[in-house]
Amino acid sequence: MRIEAKDLTFTYSKKSKAISNRALENVSLCIEEGEFFGIIGQTGSGKTTFVQHLNGLIRVQKDSGSLSVGEFDLTAKKCDLKALRSRVGMVFQYPEYQLFAETVKDDVAFGLRNFKKELSLEEEERRVKLAIETVGLNYEEIKDKSPFELSGGQKRRVAIAGVIVTEPEVLVLDEPVAGLDPVGKRDFMKLLHRLHASFVKTIILVTHDMNVVSENCTRCAIFSHGKIHSVGSPKEIFSNYEQLIELGLDIPVTAYLERELKKLGIDVDSDLTESDFADKTAKAIVGGKQ
């Protein structure tokens, strides 16, 4: 599903001028099917407001641009939100806080029961099992437990299983690694790549962590004060060091090092992933010596 926003504008509390607050202003952005897309920006830059448009949680306001997700036209009055939401999954910050059911199985099945009412019990169980195993948990061990007796990391996995159980083509994640420790973070990114390799075609990742962006994303967009500041590959985006610092954003360690090395006359020119950077730097330095 291709995502295309044109001049998307959104204002909170539009009716009362005293507290109305423009969150998005003329945002135009295309995200192609198959991308691992990063969305970066400071808190309050409009990135959350933008992604919540993608599955109709926030509706496009009147005369405020257009938005289409695959065959769904979100500007149209009649848009089948249910069908859209079953195909655009959304993982919120701290998703473990949305768990509610008595058992893990029921919680994961919640979306399935809402979206696909005609499923047989066997089919439902098969899908729930698949989702729980995909996030790296043991189905038999965990299915009848209460979600509230699990550890923090397990809770988050169960919550993710509850989103991917409908096998969405697009998966939007808002700060999904917040609060995870380094190993938890690494495992989580592995899970995302696993999903991207199977049924999830497009991943849209909202994050503050620039190293996560340079390490994983094909392309990314920077939001600033409700507008899109720039769009491109991590390489293109992070070449703009001064501007990013001005926006209060960091750059990945690899981009920083490339910049420092360039000052010394070494042009590494990697794709900014850690391994590519290390390979090319080693070649430039060790190779130069020999």
Partner: peptide, 8 residues
């Protein structure tokens, strides 16, 4: 919003 996203 989170539950709506799951079809509630």
């Amino acid at each position: 919003k989170a539950q709506k996203a799951r079809g509630a």
